[in-house]
Design a protein around this nucleic acid. Structure first.
Length: 110
DNA sequence: TGTATGACGCCGC
DNA sequence: CGCGGCGCCATAC
């Protein structure tokens, strides 16, 4: 529709590259896209991920490992359910062993 | 065209 | 060490 969609699509592309049972942060994705200061835009792109079913937005959290976007999903703990379903330990909306399951696109994709 | 918002991140206190 | 406020980029109204 527009070139602007390319920005969103780019975010979806990286999000889709997130391995199973792994998570990443908006900032890392933004940084990978070259827009480290646009970490918020990454989250916004995720907001539109509703039309992109192949985008595992539930694997994307903030740099603290908190499921900040969980409130944006179905309005319930769907996001946490999906993460736990993948083997990710989540407690109190916070991912346990976050650094352990953290997936760095810039490093992994180099 | 301008203002306000936003699923974040970093600096400061 | 913990909590708060400001800043940045892009989209939507």
């Amino acid at each position: 529709m527009k070139e602007s969609d390319n920005f969103f699509e780019r975010v979806y592309g990286v999000a889709r590259l997130i391995p199973y049972g792994r998570v990443t942060s908006y900032g890392e994705i933004a940084k990978y896209l070259g827009a480290a200061r646009s970490a918020r835009m990454v989250g916004w792109a995720m907001n539109s991920s509703g039309k992109h079913e192949d985008v595992p937005a539930h694997r994307v959290v903030n740099r603290k490992g908190l499921l900040t976007g969980k409130h944006h999903f179905d309005g319930t703990n769907l996001m946490q359910q999906l993460l736990e379903s993948e083997g990710v330990v989540v407690e109190n909306n916070q991912i346990q062993n976050f650094e352990e399951i953290f997936w760095n696109p810039t490093k992994e994709l180099s």
